[in-house]
Amino acid sequence: MMEHIFKFVLTLNSLLLSLMVFLVKEEIVINSLHPYISNLPNIITYILYFLVILIFTWLSMQLTNTLDTDEIDEGSISVIEPANDAFLPSYLGYFFVALSVPNIEVFFYVFTIICVFIFYSRISYFNPIFFLFGFNFYYIVNNKNIKVLLITRRQLKEPNNVVFNNLRRINNYTFMDMERQVP
């Protein structure tokens, strides 16, 4: 059950930047809410939007402690491929959609459909905010020729000596490693 909640949180987090782009495009700002803050520059609202996204991403990272653990033994990885660049074009597509929708109703309709597709996909949890927290995305292939997505702070290059003792399983194809980079 917790895996589904976490998957839903990651899916929403992956789309929050698109919501921010839409809100900025539409110039929806907090200074119109109350006369006392009417003189605030719009940039304050945009910074608050970004801070909310950072907080939600950080909270989702904290939720990983509730997920099941798994491990990858030394010598069991045959291939490591960076996956950051593979996700970026799709993510930029979300931005272009957010810039082109005409109103909030269409935005929520379109992004609800996208959210459903992301939720039911096997490995679409790409969130560029993870980069700010030091994470990278890698495809790893094990000796049984099974390819999975690994979200980790480590810099991976050589598959021979890589060991993960405390992975968090998002699903059977996506794992998150919360350990820091080992010098």
Score class of each variant (00 low, 15 high):
Val106Tyr: 13
Ile55Asn: 10
Phe111Asn: 06
Leu12Trp: 03
Tyr36Pro: 11
Phe133Trp: 05
Ile43Met: 15
Ile80Asp: 00
Arg153Ala: 01
Ile30Val: 06
Tyr94Ala: 12
Phe137Met: 01
Leu48Ala: 04
Ser100Val: 11
Ala98Ile: 06
Asp177Gly: 05
Val21Trp: 14
His34Thr: 03
Lys157Trp: 08
His4Met: 02
Phe133Pro: 01
Asn171Ala: 02
Gly134Thr: 07
Asn127Ile: 09
Arg153Val: 04
Met1Tyr: 00
Leu48His: 09
Val9Arg: 06
Ile77Arg: 11
Asn165Thr: 03
Ser32Phe: 14
Gly134Ile: 12
Val9Pro: 04
Leu19Tyr: 12
Leu17Gln: 13
Leu156Arg: 01
Asp70Asn: 14
Leu10Phe: 13
Thr174Trp: 09
Val141Glu: 15
Leu92Trp: 00
Ser14Gln: 08
Ala83Trp: 02
Asn161His: 14
Phe50Trp: 02
Thr174Phe: 08
Glu81Arg: 06
Val52Trp: 11
Met20His: 15
Met20Ile: 15
Glu3Ala: 15
Thr66Ile: 09
Ser76Gln: 12
Asn166Cys: 06
Glu3Asn: 13
Asp68Gly: 11
Leu156Ala: 06
Pro159Cys: 07
Asp73Arg: 12
Val116Lys: 13
Leu33Lys: 03
Asn145Glu: 12
Asn65Tyr: 00
Ile151Cys: 07
Ile28Glu: 07
Val116Gln: 14
Ile114Glu: 01
Phe50Gln: 02
Val29Asp: 04
Ile140Arg: 08
Met61Lys: 06
Asn39Gln: 15
Leu15Asp: 08
Phe175Ser: 09
Thr64Arg: 04
Arg168Phe: 07
Ile47Arg: 06
Asn160Tyr: 10
Ile77Asn: 09
Glu74Ser: 10
Leu33Glu: 05
Asn160Arg: 13
Asn143Trp: 02
Phe108Trp: 13
Asn145Ser: 12
Ala83Cys: 00
Val162Ser: 03
Ile80Phe: 04
Thr64Cys: 00
Arg153Pro: 00
Asn161Ser: 05
Phe117Lys: 03
Pro82Asn: 07
Val141Tyr: 10
Pro82Gly: 00
Pro82His: 04
Phe175Ile: 04
Leu59Gln: 07
Leu40Lys: 04
Asn161Glu: 13
Arg154Ile: 02
Thr66Ala: 12
Val24Gly: 02
Asn142Ala: 13
Leu10Met: 13
